[in-house]
């Protein structure tokens, strides 16, 4: 009998990979098979999925529970407008630049708000988002408090036809989601990612291992902020209109994202995906009820947090011992390896 081997892959994860690849091809072909409204919705879903993965990385793995990610969504949106209108950049270049700028801006912010612990950190992030909102409302060149629209010339620079533009902005959303999910997955598999999980599971243990907790958290915060700004840029590239209240909305860019992650399963990679699908399924069926829908969402999140803190994915995983994104190592003995 040969020695047992250690592996991350499981049969479920291999099947999941195949399914994911097929889904990806189908999604990439959406401009040829989906209607305009469906494509818009799918684009929105993909962007929310990205936001959810990013927030989950921060809160579920790095213990940085932020309720102020709208700061970077709005920042990315505003940078798209500013850099294209005043900087003459191509929208895609502007969105990428927005990510870089967000990374730079997030460093001094982190050094300040990392002084706040736990829940106070959360409210601190909200203050930062408010500072962003109020500051951008002061910029009259960008429409001040009432906001502005993306000039037609810039919109046209994306693609000549409307359907071309819509397809492009959809593909950008799809690309962003793929990049974000892969980046988060690869990061969590790396040495630093494992360090993060160690931090989450025990700060004392992690510091005993010689992991610089502060630095690792800072890196996560900066990278997440950059990606969040890029997603923000894409969101407002879809919307073509921006205002401080829409750009820095705590409900749209943080509350919904938190609900997605909590309901799906915080601290798991699969959670945000399940959560996003559930969230949009709920929204599409209950959206007509407006405020009731939001109350139901809040209630569901509370119940999940109290009764099943690992969310819907946690329930599924415990029941079937599934892992679609193989992060943990498993010991395989020769017998079931031969199967």
């Amino acid at each position: 009998m040969s020695a047992p081997t250690v592996t991350r892959a499981t049969r479920a994860s291999s099947v999941a990979t195949v399914i994911a690849l097929i889904a990806l091809v189908l999604l990439a072909a959406a401009p040829w098979w989906a209607g305009r409204a469906d494509m818009r919705l799918m684009g929105e879903i993909l962007l929310y999925l990205s936001l959810a993965c990013l927030w989950n990385l921060m809160a579920g793995y790095a213990g940085l529970v932020s309720v102020g990610q709208q700061a970077f969504v709005g920042f990315g949106g505003y940078m798209l407008f500013a850099l294209t209108i005043f900087g003459g950049l191509h929208p895609i270049a502007a969105i990428i630049a927005a990510g870089g700028l967000a990374a730079i801006v997030s460093i001094p912010i982190a050094t300040l708000i990392f002084r706040l612990k736990g829940a106070y950190f959360a409210i601190g992030t909200w203050v930062i988002a408010e500072v962003f909102r109020l500051s951008f409302a002061q910029v009259s060149a960008l429409g001040g408090g009432s906001g502005s629209s993306l000039p037609v010339g810039i919109v046209k620079s994306l693609a000549a036809s409307r359907s071309g533009r819509e397809a492009l902005s959809y593909w950008l959303a799809l690309g962003a989601a793929v990049v974000v999910i892969s980046a988060v997955y690869l990061f969590l598999r790396s040495r630093r990612g494992l360090a993060l999980t160690a931090i989450r599971d025990s700060e004392v243990a992690a510091s005993g291992l010689g992991i610089d907790i502060w630095r690792t958290k800072l890196e996560v915060y900066v990278v997440t902020s950059a990606f969040t700004a890029i997603i923000g840029g894409l969101i407002f590239l879809q919307k073509l209109r921006i205002s401080p209240d829409a750009a820095f909305s705590v409900n749209d860019w943080t509350a919904f994202v938190i609900f997605i992650v909590v309901i799906g399963g915080i601290g798991t990679l699969e959670g945000p995906i399940i959560g996003t699908l559930l969230f949009f399924a709920l929204r599409e069926t209950l959206a007509d009820f407006g405020t009731i829908y939001l109350m139901v969402l809040g209630l569901v999140a509370i119940v999940v947090m109290l009764k099943a803190p690992k969310g819907v994915w946690g329930l599924i995983r415990d029941r079937f011992d599934l892992e679609l994104f193989p992060l943990s190592y498993r010991v395989r003995t020769a017998t079931d390896k031969g199967a």
């Binding site: 909590v262 009731i292 809040g298 109290l306």
Partner: peptide, 27 residues
């Protein structure tokens, strides 16, 4: 029920409560 060593439950539960209250008042 949310109190304990983990900071997530109280934070997220009160966050959910906030959204519920806001919308209940709106309603």
């Amino acid at each position: 029920q949310t109190l304990g060593p983990d900071i997530l439950p109280p934070l997220l539960v009160t966050f959910g409560l906030s959204v519920i209250l806001q919308n209940a008042l709106l309603e």
